[in-house]
Amino acid sequence: MNNMDSRSERFISPSMKMADLINSEPDLLSVVNHCGIILGFGEDSVEECCKRQGKDPFTFLTICRIFLFDRSSEVDCGKIRIDDVTDYLRGCHDSYKEIWLPQLEKEIASVLSCRPEAQRKVISEFFGKFRDELKIHFEVEEKKIFPSLYEIGKRGRGTMKVFKEEHGNIGENIQDLINLLLKYIPYEKSDPEVILVLSRLYSLKRDLAIHSRIEDYLILPLVRGGKDHE
């Protein structure tokens, strides 16, 4: 992602067709999904598409830019519609909880079904712990952090210590799980199912990293400095 030049960054504009944006950067499907934007764009531009579905185009494109280019310097937090950001984060939580994690759990169990019990148990316990920690993290955000964000925005300032604390070692744990499955299970044959599980884990790791990045760039400045927003 880092070798994309500024030309392609400029190329993302509100007036381009939404379908063209996705076709040129298919990874953005994940943003579309987490933002709750419904497919079937037809020939609509990004701006038309967002407005028709009640989303703020500027916020959507800012999330897309952070997703693709990992830059915080050009983010204008003052113009962001905070509700759209929390919708995105909630959308992430929902897809992880309802789709990604249950699917991964099932697939990991299937991949290890013919391995000795100790191996199955170790991995499933590690996964269980990772999943539970993730769910707690989501719950804290949804119950404590998102509701106070609106208030902080209104007052124009505020601090939220809990936010940084809850924002911990998620990426580390998923990389540990990847390494355990990649390096330390003595498989007997090449197994496409394992490859699929690993690919999903890498995707989840990337998506979680971007989820944290969005929080760092769009939520933390609000919590720290507090800018007015509508």
């Binding site: 100790a118 191996q119 590690f126 712990k129 070692n169 744990n173 540990d176 355990l180």
Partner: peptide
């Protein structure tokens, strides 16, 4: 060497390597 950072991950590694009993 292992690429594993968390204590839970290192414990899982130790078990998988047979260094420790589950």
């Amino acid at each position: 060497k292992t690429g594993i950072k968390s204590i839970a991950g290192l414990t899982a590694y130790a078990i998988l390597q047979g260094l420790i009993d589950i």
